[in-house]
Design a protein around this nucleic acid. Structure first.
Lengths: 160, 160
DNA sequence: GGCCATTCAGTTGTGCACAACTGAATTGTG
DNA sequence: CACAATTCAGTTGTGCACAACTGAATGGCC
C-alpha cells in the first residue's frame, strides 16, 4: 500500500501531487468569479470579506478584524483606508484605548449590504456544489488550515 | 431540508458560511508553511512552483509554464527574471518562433532540485493528512476550480 | 505578395500578503 | 511611582496576481 513513508521523494515533487497548488488554483479561480460578481459593487474580494465582518459584528478594532480574517495591520490598514476613501467605512481612534482604531460601516456601507445579498448565492451556484458538499469541504479546509497554523517552523527545516 | 433554494440570502452572508474564505485562509496557511520550508532554498512558493514545472518538463515557453500554473505573462515575466537573476533559470528567445521565450533550469537550478526533494514530504507531514485524504481533497479542489473557471461572467451580474 | 487578425512576452498600474520596523499607548513588575 | 515589556496601528519594501496595454512576430486569407 502507498503511504507517506513508502512514497519516494521523487513522486512527491510531481506538480499534480501538490495539494497546495490545487488549493492555490481553486482560490484564484474563486477570486476571478468574485471579481466578476463584486465588480458592480466596486469592491475587491478582500474588501468584501472585511465588510462581511463589519456587517456581521458591527464596529470592531482593526486587530479584531484581523483575527477574523487572519490578516495583519500591514494588509488591513491600507485596505481600510481605501474602503474609507470609497465612503463605505469610518475609522476612529478608540477612546478607551488610544492605541486602537475601530472601523464601522457608514450608511453607504450599510446600503451596500443590500446589494451584496445576492452575491453568495450566485457564487454558490457557480460552484455547482450542494450546500452539504460545500459545508463538508469547508470543514476539511478549516481543519487543514488550523493544523498548518500550528506547525512549528523548526519542523520544516532540513536539519529539523 | 436545507437546500440552495430554501436558504435565505441573510444566511449566505455569514462569514463562516463562505467556502471561499476557508479556501483563502487554507491557501495562506500553506503559503506560510512553504515560506518556512523554502527559506533555506531562497525561493518563494510561486518560484518553487515554476521550478517544479521546469524540473518535470524541461525547457518550456513562458506560455506553457503559464498553462500549467494558470498564470499569465504579467506574473511570470518578472518572476522568471528574478529566478534568472538568482542563477537558477536561463531564458532565450525561441529560434522557431521569435515571439516566444523559453525558460530552462541552469546547473544551479538542477542542483537545487536535490535540496528541494525533501520539501513536499515535510509539507505533507505538516498537514497531518494521509496520502489518501490529500488525494481526495486535491481531486475535490481540482473539480471545483475547473467548474469555476468555466463560469460565464454574465451569470454573476445582478441582472443576469 | 499584401494586409489584417492573432499570438506572444513584456510593461504599467492597482491591490493584496507579509516581514520587519516605528512610535505611541498601555500594562506589568518591582 | 518608575521603567521595561507588550500591544497596537501604521509604514516600508518585496513579491505575487491580474487587467489593460504595447510592440514585435506570425499565420491566414484574399
Amino acid at each position: 500500500m502507498e503511504t507517506l513513508d513508502t512514497t519516494r521523494d521523487e513522486d512527491f515533487l510531481r506538480l499534480d501531487h501538490q495539494i497546495c497548488f490545487s488549493l492555490h488554483a481553486a482560490t484564484r479561480a474563486f477570486n476571478g468569479v468574485y471579481r466578476g460578481a463584486l465588480k458592480e459593487l466596486g469592491l475587491t474580494y478582500p474588501q468584501y470579506l472585511v465588510l462581511l465582518v463589519l456587517w456581521e459584528r458591527g464596529e470592531l478594532p482593526v486587530k479584531r478584524i484581523g483575527e477574523h480574517l487572519r490578516l495583519d495591520s500591514g494588509t488591513l490598514s491600507p485596505l481600510l483606508k481605501r474602503l474609507e476613501a470609497a465612503g463605505y467605512v469610518e475609522r476612529r481612534r478608540s477612546a478607551e484605548d488610544e492605541r486602537s482604531v475601530t472601523a464601522r460601516v457608514t450608511e453607504d456601507g450599510a446600503a451596500l449590504r443590500e446589494k451584496a445579498l445576492g452575491v453568495p448565492r450566485r457564487i454558490a451556484a457557480a460552484t455547482g456544489m450542494s450546500l452539504e458538499e460545500i459545508r463538508d469541504l469547508r470543514a476539511q479546509l478549516n481543519r487543514l488550515a488550523a493544523r498548518l497554523d500550528e506547525v512549528d517552523p523548526d519542523d520544516l527545516t532540513v536539519c529539523g
